[in-house]
Design a protein around this nucleic acid. Structure first.
Lengths: 236, 236
DNA sequence: GCAAAAGTGTTGTCCTTACACCCATGC
DNA sequence: GCATGGGTGTAAGGACAACACTTTTGC
């Protein structure tokens, strides 16, 4: 009886229409005070070398998050990277090869911590603000992820994922300004992060800067994890 | 040449694995001061009548949002209902009939404004707080949508979608308390909504209540739409 | 008259904002 | 010495939280 019902449900599922499913990663980085996105030139002749997100189809029996991690790892060599599902894009005509559904993931990583070893298809970091045309609906996908990021970094201190292990408050502020597209008051910004009490003073200073060097800090990821539980709602 | 590249990309897509894709709607309602969810008993013998979300597979060439609207309309007869994509669920073993990906949509509707005409499979409103076991991973899906809703009603005045056209401030507060699972100060709550300036005083009063009747208000959807543009970030 | 909810203001606290000067370093 | 950003405090205003009594209606 149990076997029969399991068979029946398999037969039912077999009658469903099936679609190709991909994952696309919007991988943000931060360099030279600019928000960057890791992109390649599309290898489809159809798009004539327009920029494209890093993506791949989801394998059979592969979890969706795992697929996104796989893509990230394949292209950057990194794991333990911030990654979160953002939105599904499924307009029937979004792919020139027929219907393809894609799940957009947003990832934040520290550009210095990894080297792009494989530069095929001009895999590289591109300024977010300079993006114009892209392959597929990828411009829309990137913009959606950017909006998601703008909202999230005001709720949670995600920005640290984009910075080197040790950073100055100036770099942190530049990061927030680049993502939010606003300029922030320096004193208030520093007070805010000081009051969060999630920064570790390394007792080191910036090197090789042509001005008074700033203190370097580390983000206290462990302390954040413990605090995180209590943060319900919109509070930073 | 262009045709060739279009053919090539079709052939490429044909090599992708394909999966069945469904949409599941978490339809919230509010009645008797309780947050409700519209559910049916699963018609899969496998689940022995456990509660299930309303869902269906996505048709060929059907946009994802359209699929969600179709399900909503089929079951409630309503359109012009609040609906938003929340998250994709794709664990390989989440469906007993083989791999099925589902996109969860969250919908808010006013229970009084519609009649459930077709009560097949015990289609009915169930208390959110009483849900225990459900078919598939639907309990997780409902909980995810509830968390999403808790966050969103603190950022945008979505709650009005769950109320009748005319409502008292007490009903509005009960709604927020039910969704957030907290109790709120009555005076502060009223001040907050008064200061939003999005309520229209109908000059009508509650009827048939066994106590002093309250004023009835309408939500100014038009004014909200105009204001909405300016609301960037987390402000209500 | 009693139960039940409507309606209404003030105060203190905290958070956010705006704003200006001296300091350390490289050149 | 000059350019560049580092580092710091305070005051005003706005938002939020806490809190109690009178009023209106149904019964």
């Amino acid at each position: 009886m149990k076997k029969n019902s399991a068979q029946a449900v398999h037969h039912l599922v077999d009658t469903y229409p099936k679609v190709p499913l991909t994952v696309d990663c919007v991988i943000f980085g931060f360099e030279e005070n600019k928000l960057k996105v890791l992109l390649i030139k599309s290898d489809l002749a159809f798009f004539q070398g327009k920029l494209s997100l890093l993506g791949d189809f989801v394998k059979n029996n592969e979890d969706l998050d795992d697929a996104a991690y796989r893509i990230l790892k394949a292209r950057t060599g990194m794991n333990n990277v911030f990654l979160d599902q953002v939105k599904v894009f499924g307009k029937p005509d979004r792919h020139p090869g027929g219907r393809v559904i894609t799940i957009a993931y947003c990832s934040l990583l520290n550009i210095q911590h990894h080297a792009l070893k494989i530069h095929d298809n001009e895999l590289d970091w591109y300024d977010y603000n300079s993006l114009k045309e892209m392959a597929f609906d990828h411009l829309e996908v990137v913009q959606e992820c950017h909006g998601w990021l703008q909202k999230r970094i005001q709720e949670h201190p995600l920005g640290f994922n984009l910075l080197p292990d040790k950073f100055s408050l100036r770099e942190l502020q530049n990061l927030y300004e680049a993502i939010l597209g606003v300029s922030l008051d320096r004193r208030n910004f520093r007070k805010k992060f000081a009051s969060m009490d999630l920064l570790i003073d390394t007792n080191e200073m910036e090197q090789d800067v042509s001005h008074r060097p700033g203190k370097l800090y580390q983000f206290n990821f462990d302390k954040y994890k413990k605090k995180k539980q209590k943060w319900i709602g919109i509070d930073f």
